[in-house]
């Protein structure tokens, strides 16, 4: 017999599984890890359902869980990731299996530029510019101050711009 927690999780998964997966995927750059962490996010939401007081929306709450599980996972994977990146420094978006994740050609350039940014810049840009969360919601998800969100976003956007200009320059040069 399904309890009310299970019903909530079922409903939330229907509504938010895509956006949560994409958020984690853009942070980890690994679709398999993103799938595992998406599952972990919803499982944690089930397990700690009683702590959700409804002060924020369930979407914000789910994103804060997703952020925490991802950061925890990345922290644990840090030494492994270091060696992975040493031998495979740039993840080629073309290698993504199409039956799992699809990215349209028009967004590949900006996605690659985003992937090259440092983690703190990337997460703020994803939440604010891609997911459309407010500054307050972003601060809540990242568990930091609003001013920190503003300043990180500003620096992140400058870094992204720099990266895109560099990439377009490279593209011009190779043409």
């Amino acid at each position: 017999m399904a309890d009310y927690r299970e019903e909530d999780i079922h409903e939330w998964y229907n509504l938010y599984h895509q956006t949560i997966f994409k958020f984690i995927f853009m942070l980890t750059k690994d679709y398999q890890q993103a799938e595992d962490l998406t599952q972990e996010t919803f499982f944690k939401a089930y397990k700690y359902h009683h702590t959700f007081k409804g002060d924020s929306s369930e979407k914000t709450w789910l994103f804060s869980i997703a952020h925490n599980v991802t950061v925890d996972h990345m922290r644990k994977q840090k030494p492994i990731r270091f060696f992975k990146e040493l031998f495979q420094p740039q993840i080629d978006i073309k290698l993504l299996p199409e039956n799992v994740v699809q990215l349209k050609e028009s967004s590949k350039e900006i996605h690659e530029a985003l992937s090259a940014l440092k983690h703190s810049h990337r997460e703020v840009i994803i939440l604010r510019k891609i997911k459309g969360f407010s500054i307050t919601e972003t601060a809540e998800i990242l568990n930091c101050s609003e001013s920190k969100v503003k300043s990180t976003l500003h620096r992140g956007m400058l870094a992204l711009e720099k990266r895109l200009i560099k990439e377009s320059g490279l593209n011009e040069h190779t043409k």
Partner: peptide, 14 residues
């Protein structure tokens, strides 16, 4: 850039 970023959400599909 903002428009391009917003587009990523729709161009990426699981």
């Amino acid at each position: 850039y903002n428009r391009a970023l917003q587009k990523v959400e729709y161009d990426l599909e699981w």
